[in-house]
């Protein structure tokens, strides 16, 4: 019966999509979050790879 294989393949592809989506959300553009983030909280956040954090850091250095 190919049905279990079909479910498995679709499940794996959904996992792939959700993974890429999550990865994309972690790297945010400053326009996406304008006015939503506090600089202090952002810099204290443990996630190291983040576009918003990079932006704040660049601003601080400048």
């Amino acid at each position: 019966m190919p049905i279990p294989y079909a479910i498995l393949v679709v499940f794996l592809l959904v996992i792939l999509y959700v993974g890429s989506f999550a990865l994309n959300r972690r790297y945010m553009h400053e326009g996406d979050v304008e006015g939503q983030y506090d600089m202090k909280k952002c810099l204290a956040c443990p996630i190291s790879v983040c576009g918003v954090k990079d932006r704040f850091k660049e601003g601080e250095e400048a």
Partner: peptide, 28 residues
């Protein structure tokens, strides 16, 4: 596996994943 009937769903999911990667790349 003889499951070509799910090809459209599979293709849509592959394309959607690739678009997420492209978006991330352009954003960066």
């Amino acid at each position: 596996l003889g499951i070509t009937f799910i090809s459209t769903i599979a293709f849509i999911l592959i394309i959607a994943s690739l678009v997420q990667l492209v978006e991330m790349f352009i954003k960066r």
